[in-house]
Amino acid sequence: MKRTRKTLLSLLCAVGLLLSLTVAASAADYDFQGTGGQTLKLTAPAAVTVESTEGVYRNTITDPLPAGQELTFTFQLSAGMNNYDAALFQEKSLPLIAVKESYEGENLHSPTYVSGSKEAGITIAVPALEEGSYVLVFGAGIQANNPDKTLGQDIVFQFTVSADSQVTPPETTEEPEQPEETPVTVECPYTDVSPEAAPAVMELVEKGYLTPDSDTLLGADKPVTRGELVTLMGRCRDINAGKYTASSFADLTDDDPAMPYVEWAAGKGLINGYGAGLVGPQDQLNREQAACILARYATVFELENASGKESLGGFADKDQVSPWAKESVQWAVAAGLFTGDTLNPQAVVTRQEMAVMMTAVGLAEG
Rank of each mutant, 00 (worst) to 15 (best):
55 G>V: 13
74 T>H: 01
90 Q>P: 02
77 L>E: 08
84 Y>T: 10
86 A>D: 06
65 L>R: 04
68 G>H: 05
85 D>A: 02
102 S>H: 08
87 A>L: 02
69 Q>L: 00
61 I>S: 07
88 L>R: 11
90 Q>G: 04
58 R>A: 08
66 P>H: 11
77 L>A: 11
95 P>W: 12
100 K>C: 04
101 E>M: 00
77 L>H: 10
58 R>K: 12
89 F>G: 04
94 L>Y: 05
94 L>P: 05
56 V>Y: 02
74 T>A: 02
55 G>L: 12
64 P>N: 01
73 F>G: 09
87 A>H: 03
88 L>E: 10
92 K>I: 13
53 T>R: 13
52 S>E: 13
85 D>E: 03
75 F>Y: 12
79 A>I: 09
80 G>S: 14
78 S>P: 03
59 N>R: 10
81 M>W: 05
63 D>A: 06
84 Y>F: 15
60 T>A: 15
61 I>W: 12
55 G>P: 12
61 I>H: 11
77 L>V: 09
53 T>I: 08
100 K>P: 01
49 T>I: 15
76 Q>K: 14
62 T>P: 03
61 I>L: 15
74 T>N: 04
58 R>G: 06
82 N>W: 09
65 L>W: 04
97 I>A: 00
53 T>C: 09
65 L>S: 07
52 S>R: 14
86 A>N: 08
88 L>M: 08
79 A>L: 11
55 G>N: 14
66 P>G: 06
58 R>V: 06
93 S>E: 07
78 S>A: 05
68 G>V: 03
101 E>T: 05
85 D>Q: 03
59 N>M: 10
84 Y>D: 13
59 N>E: 11
76 Q>A: 10
87 A>P: 04
94 L>G: 03
85 D>Y: 01
99 V>S: 00
53 T>K: 14
81 M>T: 05
99 V>F: 02
